[in-house]
Computed example of a mutant assay.
Amino acid sequence: MARASSNEGRGPLYRLYINRLRRRLEPGAVPRHLAMMIDGNRRWARQLGYDSAAHGHRAGAAKMREFLEWCDDLGIRVVSLYLLSNDNLTKRDSKELSDLLEIIAELAEQLSHERDWRVQHVGRSDRLPPELARVLVAAQDRTRDHTGMHVNLAVGYGGRGEIVDAVRSIIAKHDEGGGSLEELAASLTPEQIGEHLYTGGQPDPDLVIRTSGEQRLSDFLLWQSAHSEFYFVEALGPDLREVDFLRAIRAFADRDRRFGG
């Protein structure tokens, strides 16, 4: 897979096409919540001959900032970025992981100063290095009162673990009230579990996008994506273009959502 040309997207015809795509999108047709799985950073770095995956991860982080601007300009209210899974914390090369943790910390710090975005960490802080956990908490606190686009940063995240944490939270709360397990079993609902997820109170993602041609969820928002639409882009993460993004939104707008039907 070739890297996109450095001049691609700068010509007048390209911008004309972008503007045409934007005009054809009705405001009510864009997703309220969009989840993005940025993938292919390592392959991007390897194909360009870099000796370290960090070059790809930095390019991917820069693309994520650009991607969020596209989302904000289109009126999307919630965006979730899958930046680091729990599996990544144990399976990545130690040097690559160290570089990636530093890049994620830099991205979180930068995003907390962008526009009026509200940044939220989604994941387990206790599994992260203390410095990264501190940066994520600081970014969340700094933007707590912001009213712009809500940006979820999934770091140290796992969908199965999130569901387990939600059920544990429900059991603990029920136990504090003195209820029995039989009462809890009789009253437990999907809505109750949803309220105790890391994204509790947010709409579920309407659209999930993944780059690099991979077509799997990789333990991302398993519960929340039960009725999501999916769109897979062949471009590697750093090569994602605005036209790719707008085509994904257009495809979403053209679909007849059945919500389980």
Rank of each mutant, 00 (worst) to 15 (best):
S6N: 11
N7R: 10
P12H: 07
L16T: 15
I18E: 12
I18N: 04
L21H: 13
R24I: 03
E26M: 09
E26N: 11
A29E: 01
R32P: 02
H33S: 04
M36K: 02
R43F: 01
Q47D: 15
A54L: 06
H57F: 09
H57M: 07
A62P: 02
A62M: 08
M64L: 15
M64D: 07
R65V: 11
R65L: 13
L68F: 06
L68Q: 04
E69Y: 13
C71K: 14
D73R: 13
G75H: 00
G75C: 02
R77H: 11
S80V: 00
S80W: 02
D93S: 04
D93K: 07
S94N: 03
D99Y: 09
E102G: 12
I104P: 01
A105S: 11
E106T: 05
L107G: 01
Q110P: 05
Q110R: 14
E114P: 04
D116W: 08
D116H: 13
V119H: 01
Q120H: 12
Q120G: 04
Q120T: 13
V122D: 00
D126Q: 12
P129D: 12
E131Y: 09
E131V: 13
L132Y: 05
L132V: 07
L136M: 01
L136G: 01
A138Q: 15
A139E: 03
A139W: 04
Q140Y: 04
G148E: 06
L153G: 00
G156Y: 10
Y157N: 08
R160D: 02
E162V: 11
I163E: 00
V164A: 13
K173E: 10
D175N: 11
D175L: 13
E176G: 05
G178T: 10
S180N: 07
S180C: 08
E183H: 00
S187H: 14
S187G: 14
P190I: 09
E191L: 14
E191C: 08
Q192H: 13
Q192I: 15
I193W: 05
G194Y: 06
G194E: 05
G194T: 04
H196R: 12
H196N: 11
Y198L: 02
T199E: 07
Q202L: 15
I209D: 03
S212W: 12
E214D: 11
E214A: 10
D219H: 05
L221W: 01
L222N: 08
A226M: 10
F230L: 10
Y231W: 13
F232C: 08
G237Q: 09
D239Q: 06
L240C: 04
R241P: 01
E242D: 05
D244Q: 06
F245M: 03
R257V: 09
R258L: 05
R258N: 04
R258I: 10
